[in-house]
């Protein structure tokens, strides 16, 4: 199975959350539902553009390879490696979010204190672990490059959205 689709889904979901975070803390109004959605869409748009870079790098590398099947297998192995730590991270986030929204507020606080807060700080580490796993899973240098580009793209979404739309407190 090609890991491209789940990777793209994960990357875009992360971009939407990044958009939300870029806006959070910039608007003290109480009712922010629409503004939150708009921020998430902005993150999604920026993420979609930035993620074209690793996608293009992968396509170019495949196009230039002498043995395309082998090159594809190498990239796919790297992609599966990349996916593993990121999936663990995504599951941890999803569980924390579910606990936060579904459980009573005391347990919700717990989900925030030991889940969502620290997980935000651990995001760059999860990306780094993904890159390492891409290499170790037999993806070689091309996978490391593509993974590095994808990781950088994903980590750039929040600062980019923040700088473009949410520099000032409203």
């Amino acid at each position: 199975m090609t890991p491209a689709l789940p990777l793209a889904l994960l990357g875009l979901t992360d971009a939407a959350f990044s958009g939300f975070r870029a806006y959070a803390g910039r608007d003290a109004r109480i009712r922010k539902g629409r503004a939150n959605v708009r921020a998430a869409l902005r993150g999604l748009a920026v993420g979609a553009v930035l993620l074209l870079v690793p996608a293009l790098a992968a396509v170019l590398w495949l196009a230039a390879a002498a043995d395309r099947d082998r090159a594809y297998d190498t990239l796919a192995a790297g992609g599966r490696g990349f996916l593993l730590p990121l999936t663990c991270y995504a599951v941890a986030v999803a569980l924390s979010l579910a606990a936060y929204f579904l459980l009573p507020f005391r347990a919700g606080t717990l989900a925030m204190v030991i889940g969502l807060g620290p997980l935000t700080l651990l995001r760059p580490l999860a990306v780094a672990a993904g890159c390492l796993a891409a290499l170790l899973n037999g993806g070689g240098r091309p996978s490391l490059l593509v993974a590095g580009l994808a990781g950088a793209a994903v980590l750039c979404v929040e600062p980019a959205v923040h700088r473009r739309w949410y520099r000032e407190v409203r």
Binding site: A24, G25, R26, D27, A28, T109, M112, V169
Partner: peptide, 16 residues
């Protein structure tokens, strides 16, 4: 200070 308090409000929101 308004900027910092706006960010602080986000913590109050998240911690409900």
């Amino acid at each position: 200070l308004i900027g910092v308090h706006t960010e602080l409000q986000r913590l109050s929101e998240e911690l409900r």
